[in-house]
Design a protein around this nucleic acid. Sequence first.
DNA 1: CTGAAAGCGCTAACAG
DNA 2: CTGTTAGCGCTTTCAG
Lengths: 355, 355
Amino acid sequence: MPVSVKEVAERAGVSVGTVSNVLNRPESVKPATVERVNQVIDELGYVPNAAARQLRAGQSTSIALVVLDVANPFFTDVARGVESRASESGFSVLLANSDESVERESIYLDLFERQRVAGVLVSPIGDDLPHLLRLRSRGIPVVLVDRVSADDRFPSVSVDDVAGGRLAAQHLLDTGRRKLLFVGGPQKIRQVEDRLRGARKAVDQVPGAILEVVHTAALTLAEGRVAGEVARARVRAGQCDAVFAANDLLAIGMQQSMLGGPDAIRIPADVALVGYDDISFAAAAVVPVTSVRQPSGLIGATAVDLLLAEKDLGVDDRRQHIEFQPELVVRESSAARPESTRHGTATAQLTPDGT
Amino acid sequence: MPVSVKEVAERAGVSVGTVSNVLNRPESVKPATVERVNQVIDELGYVPNAAARQLRAGQSTSIALVVLDVANPFFTDVARGVESRASESGFSVLLANSDESVERESIYLDLFERQRVAGVLVSPIGDDLPHLLRLRSRGIPVVLVDRVSADDRFPSVSVDDVAGGRLAAQHLLDTGRRKLLFVGGPQKIRQVEDRLRGARKAVDQVPGAILEVVHTAALTLAEGRVAGEVARARVRAGQCDAVFAANDLLAIGMQQSMLGGPDAIRIPADVALVGYDDISFAAAAVVPVTSVRQPSGLIGATAVDLLLAEKDLGVDDRRQHIEFQPELVVRESSAARPESTRHGTATAQLTPDGT
DNA sequence: CTGAAAGCGCTAACAG
DNA sequence: CTGTTAGCGCTTTCAG
């Protein structure tokens, strides 16, 4: 049923070598022959078998992108960047979803290793160095996305998450908040850790300001809703006047649960809220969410550039680490409290400080 | 550099056939040999070459999923359903994004045809029957997702979009709205057409009710924002008291632009809003959006089932068409207008009817 | 410019 | 239970 070069060759009265040349180097074949062969190809509906071609070439023409969560708009934006840049260079993109699971990440890396993809872009969960090193030793370049390798061994394109965390916290402090709550997790995700670290830096410089941490099991809307209940209690108890969520999904989920119910929390009157990523839904939330913006599409496109560079230059060249700076986008969720409202909790706010 | 079965065989002092057996039928090899070979495999870091295996097998172990828009949470939910069901059967999933472009859809279908994937799940834009038929004639089963084929030639899993459109419109009519605006596009997308058709059916049965249509270039947040401005003018002119958007992204985008600016429109006081898909952000929007829910994960999982069934039973068996029923989820965006507000436009509302 | 032939790495008979 | 061998479909020298 499936038609191969051989049949095309027979039918066109040429050899398989010539058919192959028509396909790959048509300029080196007599025009008349090219035409005749192409005609037969159409007639027979011949489609080259990628597996065979790849077997010879030793490598496929696809690059893989493994993300932490396809349901997170940030990553789909990155994926778009990757895809458009990759297709310009003739590569197609295989998108895989590790879902924040180390195991699934590993399964996909194995799969892509067996497939001998042309390269792997990965937003790794932990630091599965052995696995990544093995890919590379097999000639498959690896570029870390949205993450710098702990030990500088892989090229990477990332955003300064520590700076981003600091931006977010500083903004909250600047607008008069003092009891911050950081919400994020799992801790093994470097982005979460860095954003927290940045926030802590800002908080540590303001006397009397405190930073509590609530861990979540994942960076999703659903986890945000759960965390929202925790935050609600903290706010009600006067222990929290600002929340910094490790990403926008969490922030939006939290907002949803905090605003609901009979004991609704007001945002930003009772508590300020800042998220991370600036996904398009952040601006569309009940209370538009202040967020730390990352250049998602650019991250993806740049990652492809680094990958192609590594392919050309060879593995042992100097690794590049490209780091973008995040940007704070202020919206209503973190507006300074109107004096009237603010006053009510002002005393409680200053108490721990002894004032 | 890359190590093959041959080297493993040499090092373990066995033949390549035995190595292959250890890999694929270990029960038919003496335990001691299995162990020795496995040890060498680890030592050498051998990883089987998928291309070679596939070349022999004639087919890969991946199934492809081509969606209209990866940035649409509805499709990522479908993708999750596909992925989990596929992995249970040992298939991996290649996700591709046609981005509502016929051309890109075609490029991906070609790619997957060359890759001889085990099957293709596609949410087609138009009706590229020739392309799909060719895939099938090549032994690659095709299942339509979220869409019934015009001519019954492919198995499909879909949701009754006409019923969904009717549900939405009926709900708006039931809550007293009469001047409906349908927003969606491009028209070539069947889902859009069907939802409109359903809405029209409901509207046609209510004397005095009208349905206008605004076309959009895509089903995205950004397009929704544009359409929101159009709707704003219509509402202000008293020509519209309800909007039915073809999906939630549009609805949320519209809401965002209508609620903003100096001339803000109130939802649901001035206009009711209903979306489609019930993505998780719908409930989290400024005004929680009433939406028509589709069982997204189930759609994906079922599509995989049909695909595997077609593989087993052979192409010529009776095609299955599975159709789920949508469900209306009522939220604040379509609440009936409070009497006070409603009264203002009530006269205008009844005028066309002559009452 | 075209043909013949040698594999790429793997699996599936078929012998032993 | 294990070894030998013949391709899967393609590209790529190397001769003509």
